[in-house]
C-alpha cells in the first residue's frame, strides 16, 4: 500500500516538475537583450503569410551578414494566423498578403498593440496567351472566371464560349501548381476562393514549362508571376485585364501604382510600434529590410518598391522613434 502511494507520489512529482518548468518559460517570451553598442543581440520574431515569408527569409538571410548576433525567426501561420499572434503581442512583425481586416485591427486595439503598415514589395500576376492569338487582347475578370472556374471543368473548352466574337479555337490551359503563392492568389482573385480552380489544366511549378506550353498552342492561355513576362517579351503576349476600371496592361508600373487590378497587389509588413521604438535589434532589422528591399524583392521573385513607396515607409517609421 505504501509502495503504491510512493509510486503515485513520484509520478505526480514529475508531472508537477514539468508543469513548473513550463510556467517558468511563460515569463520570458521574447528575450530583449539588446546592446546599444555595435554588435546587436536579441531576437526578432516574424510570423504570417507564406507568400511574404520568402521576402522576410531573404531579408533575414542578408541581415545575418551584417548583424550575426541577432536571431531573426520566420514562421508561416498564414496572414490571419500571423495577425492573431501579432495582436496578442507575441511577434514583432506580421507578414501579410492583404491589409489588416477590421476585426483583426479591433483585436490589436483591445490588446493595446499599435502598429505601422509598410508595403515591402509588389506582387503581380500576368495572364498570357500565344502571340498568334489576335482576338483577345483584354479580358474582364468575369471572362477569366468563366474560363478558370471549377464549374467550367469539361464544359468551357472553346474560346467562342468565352465571348461570341471569339473564333472557334480550343482552349488549352496552363498555370501555376498548387504549391505556389501564385496559385493561391490567382484562384482567390479570379474565382473568389483560394484553391478553387478547374482541374483540367496543366499545372507546373516551373514557369518555363508554362511558357513553352503557351508557345506551343494557338489557343493556349496561362498565368504566372509578372517578372517572367518581362523576361520573355516575344515568346508570349500578356493580356490587359479589366477589373472594372478599364483595360490595364500589366507592367511593373501599373502594379506599383495599383491600377492593375485585381491581379496586382502590395505585400505588407506590420511592425509593432512599441517594440520598434524599444528594441534596437528590431529597429535595425526593419531599417535594413526597407533599405535593401530591392535586393530582397529580387531574391524572392517579386516586384520592388517605387521610390515613393519606399520614402513613405521610411517617413512613417521615422515618426515612431520620436
Amino acid at each position: 500500500m505504501s509502495l503504491l502511494s510512493f509510486k503515485t507520489a513520484s509520478i505526480s512529482a514529475s508531472v508537477l516538475a514539468a508543469a513548473l518548468l513550463l510556467t517558468a518559460c511563460g515569463g520570458q517570451a521574447t528575450n530583449t537583450s539588446s546592446d546599444p553598442a555595435d554588435g546587436l543581440s536579441g531576437s526578432v520574431t516574424i510570423d504570417g503569410s507564406s507568400t511574404v515569408a520568402p521576402l522576410s527569409e531573404a531579408a533575414a538571410d542578408m541581415y545575418r551578414d551584417v548583424e550575426a548576433g541577432v536571431n531573426v525567426t520566420v514562421a508561416t501561420s498564414g496572414t490571419g494566423g500571423g495577425f492573431k499572434a501579432f495582436c496578442a503581442g507575441e511577434t514583432d512583425i506580421s507578414d501579410a498578403s492583404r491589409p489588416i481586416k477590421d476585426d483583426e485591427a479591433a483585436d490589436c486595439e483591445a490588446n493595446g498593440i499599435k502598429y505601422t503598415e509598410i508595403v515591402i514589395a509588389n506582387d503581380g500576376l500576368s495572364v498570357v496567351v500565344n502571340p498568334e492569338n489576335d482576338w483577345a487582347s483584354c479580358l474582364t475578370v468575369e471572362q477569366l472566371n468563366t474560363i478558370w472556374a471549377p464549374e467550367s471543368e469539361g464544359t468551357v473548352t472553346n474560346w467562342n464560349q468565352v465571348d461570341a466574337s471569339f473564333p472557334d479555337e480550343p482552349l488549352v490551359l496552363f498555370g501555376a501548381g498548387t504549391d505556389s503563392g501564385t496559385f493561391d492568389y490567382f484562384t482567390d482573385a479570379i474565382n473568389g476562393d483560394e484553391g478553387a480552380i478547374r482541374a483540367d489544366y496543366s499545372p507546373s511549378e516551373d514557369d518555363n514549362i508554362t511558357i513553352q506550353g503557351v508557345q506551343g498552342d494557338k489557343g493556349a492561355m496561362g498565368f504566372f508571376g509578372l517578372s517572367y513576362v518581362e523576361e520573355n517579351p516575344d515568346a508570349i503576349t500578356a493580356l490587359e485585364i479589366d477589373g472594372g476600371q478599364g483595360c490595364i496592361y500589366p507592367t511593373k508600373e501599373t502594379v506599383q501604382d495599383s491600377s492593375y487590378q485585381p491581379l496586382g497587389r502590395g505585400l505588407f509588413l506590420y511592425v509593432n510600434d512599441a517594440n520598434y521604438a524599444d528594441k534596437a535589434q528590431l529597429r535595425s532589422f526593419v531599417d535594413f529590410y526597407l533599405e535593401n528591399s530591392d535586393a530582397v524583392a529580387e531574391a524572392a521573385l517579386y516586384i520592388p518598391l517605387t521610390a515613393d513607396q519606399k520614402s513613405t515607409a521610411t517617413t512613417e517609421l521615422a515618426t515612431l522613434v520620436g
Binding site: 518559460c25 520574431t45 510570423d47 522576410s56
Partner: peptide, 17 residues
C-alpha cells in the same frame, strides 16, 4: 504550435526557438 520555418541560429536551450 507555430513552428518556425526560418531559423538562422543554433538552438541553445529548452526555451530556444
Amino acid at each position: 504550435l507555430g513552428a518556425l520555418v526560418f531559423v538562422s541560429f543554433d538552438p541553445n536551450g529548452l526555451l530556444s526557438g
